[in-house]
Nucleic acid binder design. Structure first.
Lengths: 332, 332
DNA sequence: TTGTATGCGTTATCAG
DNA sequence: CTGATAACGCATACAA
């Protein structure tokens, strides 16, 4: 084992050419005689030379890495999108630098600064909404940004998502057909995505000629435990159905209800929002809006590559189609 | 918005000092007069200067990023470890570059090469085992490596894990007390971690004076669907209990059994291996070996920082304690 | 305490 | 088609 790894100079020496030629070979520049290329390649192989991406980045102003910001490593919703991002990133020879914002706006700014100083070629941000401060920061950056699965109130930034208004309206409409009182169990209302869902919920009630009541809206954060704990309150509400904006919360609620002797879907119907694999773990399986999360991630990344390459893009926002996945937490 | 971001020279100019002084301030070097420091800081603030980590990396031979290799972004087992890694990494001002090997040995080599060329300061590898080829590669590298949640047959490489032999032996022992035939539903036997578990299984049977039969060992890969599909075969086996090495598989098996009219734990007992949150989603909750996955990640990262800093470390392998989490897929 | 000069390993611009 | 040589933005040894 060599004490220090080979540089482009070592290869140049070994091959009897200049470093410029080595660089050309490594970058697939066609202006190299085949014989020379072979010599270089042989030297590369012999010395086990691998270009230093850091040096390359400094010289070329490109890092071939994309920063991904998400609120949690363990939440199925984001994980699934990350897979889509990563698959496409790999196709385009990018690596992804994943940072966790913990859903905290200040921390988010910090980690993004981090990413910027690491010269990422682009940024994919996941979460619920972006703070005004962050929006300002982003608009001043030269680094391109795409929001994945996120709603941008101002629609100023490139974003990939589904029509949350319509999907929630449809789901709630389904429940309202059979239930007098339908709860909305929703994430932080400070997040833009949730105000949109809130509007969809109200629109569905209106279409079903149901009374809207603020009492039927329960705000919570995205954990199984929160959902489980909520069960008692839900039972006390007298409602017979709920639309939940998060699978983990829905799973918790479901199990909480079951443990309190409430039958689902006989006594209480639930529809959840993300259709992650969590909906299959539970008994009964959870009926859900089927968001194409993998695609959201993949399209976001593809979008980003286009922006980086200064290709034409049609429209800032891509709205992907959703479906309803009818399972067993709703009546037939 | 400036067309190009400020460099250390810009700051030096604005503050009326040399770039070396700016560098000292940015790196917290104490040999700077307080007044000078203030001037520099003011200029930094005014120009919104942030050091270019790429350039810094080239000059210092440190990237302040750690590469993390895992087989899947969506598997709860790895996600949980990543959280531990990331928390500690952040404490030490590292970012993590996560790459997905898809559990494929060749791809693993490729992504690690990638990481190396990006000059990561260290590597944390998660998975089931390392191939001989990879072992060779690693031993020739100067980049320090820690294996997280992984068994190294040769015990040559730093690793953090639990005692899989003992934990499986204990779990299977529990089941063998009440059941004549206990199945082992295990991941790929090509992986070192699984041969160790296999040995633990056999040891438990021996201790319980049960006959070992190859027919009671079912090999599979780690997906919910595989577990679900396995249910029929499990029922046909006539066994009344199973130890499963993966929560996703266990959840699938559980639901498959239930759908086939088998009551758990009354007719069939299950113990699983990772105690991820998946064990709570299912009804009944899954009894599980409780691996401290977060800690495995955190300790791995801490381990790595020590190796990078050339600090003394006691022993190559850290074995963390495990517990049994008794839940409802086993009889009381 | 501060400044100067050099090098880190590439890419990219010129010549030839 | 190939080779010098100048950036790239910073850390750092050496001087002052």
């Amino acid at each position: 084992m060599e004490d220090t790894s080979a540089t482009i100079y070592d290869v140049a020496n070994a091959a009897g050419v200049s470093m410029a030629t080595v660089s050309r070979v490594m970058n697939g520049n066609p202006n190299v005689k085949e014989k020379t290329r072979q010599k270089v390649l042989a030297a590369v192989d012999k010395l086990d030379y691998r270009p230093n991406a850091i040096a390359r980045g400094l010289a070329s102003h490109k890092s071939t890495t994309i920063g991904v910001v998400l609120p949690s490593f363990v939440h199925s919703y984001y994980s699934r999108m990350v897979v889509g991002v990563d698959d496409v990133a790999r196709m385009y020879d990018y690596n992804i630098l994943i940072v966790n914002s913990d859903g905290d706006a200040d921390k988010e700014i910090m980690v993004i600064d981090d990413l910027i100083s690491k010269q990422v070629d682009g940024l994919i941000i996941m979460g619920n909404s972006i703070s005004e401060q962050l929006r300002g920061r982003i608009s001043r950056m030269r680094t391109p940004v795409v929001l994945a699965g996120m709603v941008d109130k101002e629609e100023q930034m490139p974003a990939v998502t589904i029509d949350h208004f319509a999907s929630v309206k449809e789901a709630v409409g389904l429940l309202a057909k059979r239930n007098q009182e339908v709860l909305l169990i929703i994430g932080p209302m400070a997040a833009a995505i949730n105000t949109v869902r809130y509007d969809g919920y109200k629109a569905a009630l209106k279409a079903a000629k149901r009374e809207f009541s603020e009492l039927n809206v329960i705000e919570t954060t995205y954990t199984y435990k929160n959902g489980y704990t909520l069960a008692e309150r839900v039972i006390a509400s007298g409602a017979t159905a709920a639309f939940v904006t998060d699978d983990e919360v829905a799973a918790g609620l479901l199990n909480g209800l079951l443990d309190n002797g409430v039958s689902v879907p006989e006594d209480f119907e639930i529809i959840t929002a993300n259709n992650t694999i969590v909906t299959k773990y539970t008994r009964p399986n959870l009926t859900s809006i089927d968001q194409p999360l993998y695609d959201v991630g993949a399209v976001s990344m593809r979008f980003l590559t286009k922006i980086i390459a200064h290709e034409e893009i049609d429209g800032k926002t891509a709205i992907l189609p959703y479906k309803m996945a009818m399972k067993d937490s709703t009546k037939k």
